[in-house]
Structure formats: structure tokens, C-alpha cells
Amino acid sequence: MMKTEQQELFTKRTLTERWISAVLFACAAVSIAVTAGIVMVLLFETKEFFSKVSFGQFFLDTQWTPLFAQKHFGIWPLFVGTLLTSFFAMITAIPMGLLIAIFLSEYAPEQLRRILKPIVEILAGIPTVVYGYFALTFVTPLLQKVIPDLAGFNSLSPGIVMGIMITPIVASLSEDAIYSVPASLREGALALGSTRLRAIRYIILPTAFSGIAASFILGISRAVGETMIVAIAAGQQPILTFDPRVPIETMTAYIVQVSLGDTPHGTLEYNTIFAVGSMLFIITMIFNLISFYLRKKILKGYI
């Protein structure tokens, strides 16, 4: 039986359609390949690392000196360094971000909100190397006037500057969460004679809690992975200390330090940056996933 012209056109169309959807699927699949690539590269080099260094040396030692003759591979100094800078970042970003979010969503008139929001978000778009310069040449000297024995490299100043960079992320996600609280709940509280502040404290914030928590967690993940600010202003001395005034080294700064030198492929020094990178990847991925599910909860409409 001869195919009619229409049928032919139809088959042709179906074929093109199939081709196109296959190509588009391949594009989407690239994202899975990227994750697989990250995991494979990290796993491969980290396995290499742990074939030369035992888990005990990595997790139980308190010294990190892989670049010296007397080699120690204790991750704790780098981990605590990251913890310190992230802590100062979060005690800066959480209150500021949350206050900005409440102000923009509950108090600011629409026009002011439309002007302020993009301005605050510019802060998140400034390259981190610029913040590093700002921390080293402006914030540290400024803080030294208040804290005289603050070293030129320390964890306090880059921590605070990192917090400023993270503030828009916390503010923007928290604002989305607060915005998604139904107006009926807010109006119900006000109708019962509550002040606006009480409505925020007892109705809006608890209702938006999971979204706000998601913004904090994403902020922590950003702080842990932030590299240039700490590489520039926190120093390169992996000392196990909780003193915010002295130089330290974070996990990310260590990777930069090794990358700047010419470390030959296959050496133990080369492997260490992947081992540290694996730690970093696992920590940030856990935070990212928690944050993702908390945000999903809002979208599903939990109210």
C-alpha cells in the first residue's frame, strides 16, 4: 500500500521529534555525567592517597604537614580552620540575612523592596577575590584598631567578610520562605489583635521555618566551600587552634596553596588535595541535600 503524503509527513515528523528529544535528553544527562566525573576523580585520587596514608593518620593525627620533611596527615587543623571561618561567616550572615528578609517581606513598601532587593543581591555577585582584597587591606587593619593583637592573617576578618558575601543568599531564600506564608495566617493573627511583630514571631517565622533553615544551611555550605577570601586573608598555617586572632589554614586554602606550587602528578602531595577535596565535597553535598529537601517541602505546600 502506498503511503499518502500526509502519512509520510507524519512519520518524518515523529522521527525528527524522537531525534530531538534524544539530543535534549543527552544535554540533561551531562549534568549527571558531571557529578559522576567529580565522584570518580575524587574517589580515584583519594584511594591512591589512602593506599599510602592510613585512615588513622588522616583522622586521628592533629598535625597537617604534608609539604614538610616530617610529614603528618591529620586533617583536623584544616577542618577546624574551615569551622572557624564558617562560624564567623554565619554569625554575621544569619542575623543580618534574616532581618533583611523580614524587613523586605513584612515592612518595606513594595517600591522600596523593588529597589533594595537587587542592590543587596549585587553583594553575592562580586568576585570573591575582590572580597579577599577587601578583607586583607581594609577589614583586618580596621579590626586591628579594636583588637590590637590581631595578626595580619587571621580567621576573624575573612570570616566576617565571607558572612557579608553570604548575607544575600540567606536573605533571598528566607524572604522567599516568608513570602510563601499564606496571607490568611498573617491576617488571622492581626485580626485577633496581635501586633505585627508578634505575628512575625509566633506565626510567620514558625510557619516559614523550614525555608529559613534551608537558607541557613545553604549559607553554611557556601562558607565551607569558599576559597579565595580565606586563601588571601586567613593565612596558610595549618595550626589546630580556636583562636580567631592567629593565622590558620582552611581546607580550600590548602588546595590553592598546593595548586600554586608545581606539584608533579602522582606524588603524595598531589593526592592530598584530592583527599581534602573529597572531605569538602562530602560536607557540602550533605548540606546541599538537606537544604534541597527543606525547600522542596515549601513548594509542596505543607500548610
Partner: peptide
């Protein structure tokens, strides 16, 4: 998750 992976991991 990829959007939240630190940029230095992409470097590795």
C-alpha cells in the same frame, strides 16, 4: 546539588 558544589571542586 551541582549548583552548590564549591567552585574549587570543579577545579579538581
Amino acid at each position: 546539588n551541582l549548583a552548590g558544589v564549591p567552585s574549587i571542586i570543579y577545579g579538581l
